[in-house]
């Protein structure tokens, strides 16, 4: 059982009358990429906010390395090695790469009460870490606002890994990116998993999820449609499982129909 790095059993979350999540269960192993799929409003963000300590689950339990845990704040989750890269990335575009990289966890030097932020060390680490993923930071004091979307995403992920994430949760990391940048980010995610992290990748883009995922959980209107290993799935099956999949099928039929009519 304990081979699962993180498990959550029967998680439910209600916002007043809205049932955002109902009885969702999911398990992720070390080195595994679990893709969490679902249409807009399916409850993906709510699920990971519950997992990362922003919300408390109304029902169910979170088990990390075999032990039941309750998070009172995002910091609790962070301390347990659960790092979440949110859609907004938690990057401040006016601040430098280094200042962002170490935001909230700045290395210090000096004597007590006169401790200073060790910017030199921070600059070196930030440049080195970004260099490892092939992003050449010409000047670590340049504002994050000058970086491209993919570079920012990689910065946020690389920061989470540097600070000892065991579980990496990524909320729609590729949704705002072009094809090329998305593939750079996805490659980096695969590399992170191969180093032993458990990755939960949230997306509603099957084409991004399918090539990198090891297993797939589909959420629909707050409920899990189940978890599937890659070998039991095809891209098409996954697509049709997601809410809207059927509708897209229907749409395709309709479009073909229209095409036929207009040709005639």
């Amino acid at each position: 059982m304990s081979e699962n790095l993180i498990e959550f059993n029967g998680i439910s979350k209600f916002f007043g009358k809205v049932i955002a999540l109902k009885d969702v269960t999911m398990k992720v192993k070390k080195g595994e990429i679990m893709c969490l799929l679902g249409d807009n409003g399916a409850g993906k963000s709510t699920l990971i906010k519950t997992l990362s300590g922003v919300h408390k689950p109304d029902e169910g339990e979170i088990i990390i390395e075999g032990e039941k845990k309750i998070f009172d704040s995002p910091k609790d989750a962070l301390d347990m090695g659960i790092a979440t890269v949110y859609q907004d990335l938690a990057l401040v575009s006016l601040m430098s790469v280094t200042r962002n990289f170490f935001m909230g966890r700045e290395p210090q030097k000096g004597i007590p009460f006169f401790k200073t932020f060790d910017i030199e060390k921070a600059n070196n680490i930030a440049a080195e870490r970004m260099g490892q993923i092939g992003i050449d930071i010409r000047d670590p004091s340049q504002a994050v606002g000058t970086m491209s979307g993919g570079e920012r995403q990689c910065l946020a992920i690389s920061r989470a890994i540097y600070f000892g994430a065991k579980v990496l949760i990524l909320d729609e990391p590729t949704s705002a990116l072009g094809v090329h940048q998305a593939s750079v980010v996805l490659k980096y995610i695969v590399k992170a998993a191969s180093q032993g992290l458990a990755v939960i990748l949230i997306t509603h883009n099957v084409h991004h999820a399918f090539p990198v995922g090891n297993s797939f959980t589909v959420l629909n209107r707050g409920k899990s449609l189940g978890t599937y290993a890659k070998k039991d799935l095809s891209r098409e099956k996954l697509l049709s499982m997601m809410a809207g999949g059927e509708e897209l099928d229907k749409l395709e039929v309709e479009l073909r129909e229209m095409d036929r009519i207009s040709k005639n």
Partner: peptide
């Protein structure tokens, strides 16, 4: 200082800063 970085972060993006502690 670290506190100085927190000042910039708090003003630059409150939610983001909170999320990284």
């Amino acid at each position: 200082t670290r506190y100085g970085n927190w000042i910039f972060a708090s003003g630059g993006d409150k939610v983001g800063a909170t999320n990284v502690g």
